[in-house]
C-alpha cells in the first residue's frame, strides 16, 4: 500500500517537473530573448518563428560563413533563436577568429508585421561591434 506522502509525490512529482521546465522557458523568453517556439514552454504559434530573424555582418556573407562549418552554423543558429548579449558576443568572437578581421560589426534583426496595413519590416534586436584587441 502506498503511503500518503509517497502518493503525493507520485501524483504531483512529474507535473511539478513540467512546471519547472516551463518556468525556465518563460524566464528565458522574458529576460534572455528566447523565441517562444523552443525550450519546452509550449509557445509555438504565438510569435513569428525565429527562422525569419536575420543576421547581418558588415562586409561578410553569412551564407558563405556557415557553409561547411557546423560550429559556425550552430553558433549563429543559437543567436537566431536567442539573440541575447551572450550569444551575440559568442557569435562575434567566432566570426572574428574565422575571418581573421580586425573587427566585426554584427547585428541581428527581427521581423515585425502590422496586420492593419500589411507592412512587414525588420527591427534591430541586438548588435555588437567587437575588435580583435578586445578578445
Amino acid at each position: 500500500m502506498i503511503k500518503a506522502k509517497q502518493e503525493l509525490i507520485l501524483k504531483y512529482g512529474v507535473p511539478s517537473l513540467a512546471i519547472i521546465v516551463v518556468a525556465i522557458q518563460l524566464y528565458l523568453v522574458h529576460f534572455q530573448s528566447l523565441n517562444r517556439w523552443k525550450g519546452g514552454g509550449f509557445g509555438m504559434y504565438t510569435e513569428i518563428h525565429y527562422i525569419y530573424n536575420q543576421i547581418h555582418i558588415s562586409g561578410v556573407s553569412v551564407d558563405s560563413l556557415i557553409k561547411d562549418d557546423p560550429n559556425m552554423k550552430s553558433t549563429l543558429g543559437y543567436l537566431m533563436l536567442m539573440p541575447n548579449d551572450e550569444n551575440i558576443r559568442k557569435a562575434a568572437e567566432l566570426v572574428l577568429k574565422t575571418t581573421n578581421k580586425d573587427s566585426v560589426y554584427l547585428q541581428i534583426w527581427k521581423p515585425t508585421v502590422n496586420s492593419e496595413n500589411g507592412i512587414y519590416k525588420r527591427i534591430l534586436a541586438n548588435e555588437i561591434h567587437l575588435k580583435k584587441s578586445e578578445l
Binding site: 518563460l26 523568453v29 517562444r36 514552454g41 509550449f42 509557445g43 504559434y45 504565438t46 510569435e47 513569428i48 521581423p111 515585425t112 508585421v113 502590422n114 496586420s115 500589411g118 512587414y120
Partner: peptide, 18 residues
C-alpha cells in the same frame, strides 16, 4: 499564457503573417 503575453499573437499579427 504564452499567447496572452505575446503582443504579436493577441494583435492578430502572427496569424496574419503566417
Amino acid at each position: 499564457v504564452q499567447k496572452i503575453t505575446s503582443n504579436q499573437f493577441m494583435s492578430g499579427d502572427f496569424y496574419y503573417h503566417a
